[in-house]
């Protein structure tokens, strides 16, 4: 916990989609650096979609909420669609009670669904919406 400067949030690239995940010990500085870097990467790599997995975030306060909202807006301006996936139930409840709706942010139940929404299901779909595990393979 001493050297926070070194903390970097990895951003992976899968063809035209950027995939990343926020960690629980997210401080304001790291969040800001992350937002800047992601915006930069969207522009330079001409990403069409961005998946942000937040399933490990145990809290989202107004700062992180604002970061996510702003990221979505900026990405949209740059022509990319952002999907925030995997919000935990207690976090969702707390956010609405806090009065934060994440207006304009697109959400998915989990990373898998988010990826599917971004077009990652090349294999034929099982008829009745069954598991999509093979779609990512």
């Amino acid at each position: 916990m001493t050297d926070r400067q070194s903390m970097d949030i990895p951003i992976l690239r899968l063809s035209d989609v950027l995939v990343t995940g926020l960690i629980n010990e997210l401080d304001d500085k790291t969040a800001t650096v992350f937002a800047d870097e992601l915006t930069e990467r969207i522009a330079t790599e001409r990403a069409r979609g961005v998946l942000i997995d937040i399933s490990r975030l145990e809290i989202i306060d107004s700062f992180v909420a604002r970061t996510l909202t702003e990221l979505s807006t900026m990405a949209r301006l740059l022509g990319a669609r952002v999907i925030v996936a995997g919000m935990r139930p207690p976090v969702a409840i707390t956010l609405v009670e806090l009065g934060l709706q994440l207006t304009g942010v697109e959400t998915a139940l989990n990373a898998e669904q988010g990826m599917a929404a971004l077009g990652w299901h090349h294999a034929p779909r099982p008829p009745e919406g069954g598991t999509r595990r093979e779609a990512l393979g």
Partner: peptide, 15 residues
């Protein structure tokens, strides 16, 4: 909504 299962139905736009 769930039956068509088009890519667009996998997410929710927050208003």
């Amino acid at each position: 909504m769930t039956g068509q299962d088009s890519p667009a139905t996998g997410t929710t736009k927050n208003r």
